[in-house]
Design a protein around this nucleic acid. Structure first.
Lengths: 336, 336
DNA sequence: TTGAAAGCGCTAACAG
DNA sequence: CTGTTAGCGCTTTCAA
């Protein structure tokens, strides 16, 4: 079997405590002993049993990252960054997929007892505000991406309203007047915020709000974008621009537009959201709101560290906004 | 703090052993006691401490999935499936990213001691055969995707040579004669196999092997594909088709071709590998070799289960081939 | 059928 | 500065 700390101590001729002290970087160890332990460590190739350590310390060293689905580029990229950021801070990141179902998200909040993980970073898609009130995960929770106004939870995200307003403002600036939106959703917090930004931008430009130009998307996959766009194109007076609430929807929209024989951006300009690499290489390349994913990952992990390390004194949820930019590409170039 | 088994036992008025028996579904418990324990379980909302259980049992309940990078669509999709397949069999899947560096892959093989995980599923990109011989992870290893001939390790993959031959054969069938390849790599096993399939298909069609039409790609990202394609287009006699060793390379190639003002498939046909959703929605949509990712994930997890459960008697590595298809789309439609 | 008790590998009092 | 020892929560002999 594997070598234990006791073996190391025995080999070094010291007590297990001294061996433990060396392993844990405790300062006050007689140099002679330290040397001998280090030799024994090297000779045996000792690796601490994390499970045992955590059992004793009362923590697990794991944080959960709860996302809808890793196969979605945005979440794949985000997960990649969270794993890396977590690793830098000594955490193991356990990924839970909910497939964007409320049920699975509730289950995660319930089942991820304090035994398995020390904290969770969650990007909820379908949870309602009351779920948070009802369910107690028993560990600190950091929410990324979504915002349900009345939930008292730490939250890291970009300013979705401003971002949407910026995106639509850009479409106005390049001369578009019939600007559609794809991605409205009855329960999704981000959807509501982006929709609000869309409406604000139209209002600021003095453009009319046309309900028929706002399309729902129950899931944010390419196919949903393609379907919504097809509906918009079937309108008696189709839009001359469309703001999609994520890049996947936009990629789907591009395809529907192409299938109709229309050109982007000449006939219809398109803007996405998330700035995935896929969008940067699509044809035409996709203008997109670019959240600083690295900042989101780092900030979330940092918040986890503070929440798990600190005292419980008077919980005041933090609301942290991370930066974003608008990456302008071919899909929204001005017509001249 | 959290409720322990001892609390449950106390509440039920039985010994901890009896409580444990009930929790673990042991059959011979007096009905009366079982009922009381179950009530106590429900009343307290008891959740077993997995870490403690595993410490005692000598296993961790975790398997590692080692991939280059989750942000790469293929691996994001694969990870998603492995997590799901693992969950079905009672495993927690821990994801390790190596960023396709040999160093990180070696580190994983070394550091993932038997304490942390019970087994690992690894998709190596940069490991050499001698790394496997040198390093002993101390846990069962299942390799997916890559094949280094002389390594005695369980292996799940499609028949890469056949798949490549099929893809290139298809290009021949639609009348292409100057068929290029993008993705050759000095150390990558899959690259060698796909290249072999490419050569075989040319030979079978009686076409000449032109070294200038085979381009290396040190990484398999979109940008590498774009660069390699640009070089091919700069040739005095550019190719009329290109077989890319993954979809990302193909997407990059599509962009370079478009930037040159050439058309796909009229001027140049393109075939990718992996059948990512991105390729299905690119413009033109991408013909691609479609490995059955679900089968790969399921088979790998199944192999893990057998290896961790069984005896050590006479290890004979398994070589399992999973099915694939060729998804023909716009990028390789015949010219008429 | 169940209880008592040992111990998985580790850390943290507490003495010394 | 270092050794002894008591558990973390759980499973598992071993008796009863």
């Amino acid at each position: 079997m594997a070598v234990t700390l006791r073996d190391v101590a025995r080999l070094a001729g010291v007590s297990i405590k001294t061996a433990s002290n060396v392993v844990n970087g405790y300062e006050f160890v007689k140099p002679e002993n330290r040397r001998r332990v280090e030799e024994a460590l090297a000779a045996t190739g000792y690796r601490p049993n994390i499970g045992a350590r955590n059992l004793r310390r009362g923590r697990t060293g794991f944080i959960a990252l709860v996302v809808p689905e890793l196969g979605i580029p945005y979440f794949g990229e985000l997960a990649s960054l969270v794993i890396t950021a977590g690793r830098e801070q000594g955490w193991n990141v356990l990924i839970e997929q909910t497939m964007a179902t409320r049920e699975a998200e509730r289950a995660v909040l319930t089942a991820l007892g304090p035994h398995m993980i020390d904290a969770a970073v969650i990007s909820p898609e379908a949870l309602h505000a009351e779920d948070f009130a009802e369910l107690d995960p028993g560990v600190p929770l950091v929410m990324i991406g979504e915002h349900s106004v009345d939930v008292r939870i730490d939250h890291v995200a970009i300013d979705n309203v401003l971002a949407a307003r910026t995106a639509v403002g850009h479409l106005v600036a390049i001369g578009r007047r019939r600007i559609a939106a794809i991605g409205a959703h009855p329960h999704r917090g981000t959807a509501a915020l982006r929709l609000a930004g869309y409406h604000e931008a139209l209002a600021a430009a003095g453009l009319p709000q046309r309900p028929e130009l706002v399309r729902e998307a129950l899931r944010y996959h390419r196919q949903n974008g393609a379907e919504a766009m097809a509906q918009l194109l079937a309108l008696p007076e189709p839009p001359d621009a469309v703001f999609c609430f994520n890049d996947l929807l936009a990629v789907g929209a591009l395809r529907s537009i192409a299938e109709r024989g229309l050109r982007v951006p000449e006939d219809i300009a398109v803007v996405g959201f998330d700035n995935t690499e896929e969008g940067a290489y699509s044809r035409p390349s996709l203008t997109s709101v670019a959240p600083d994913k690295l900042a989101i990952a780092r900030t979330a992990v940092d918040l986890v560290r503070r929440r798990t390390g600190g005292t419980d004194a008077e919980f005041v949820p933090e609301e942290i906004q991370t930066p974003f930019t608008l990456e302008i590409r071919e899909s929204s170039l001005p017509r001249f």
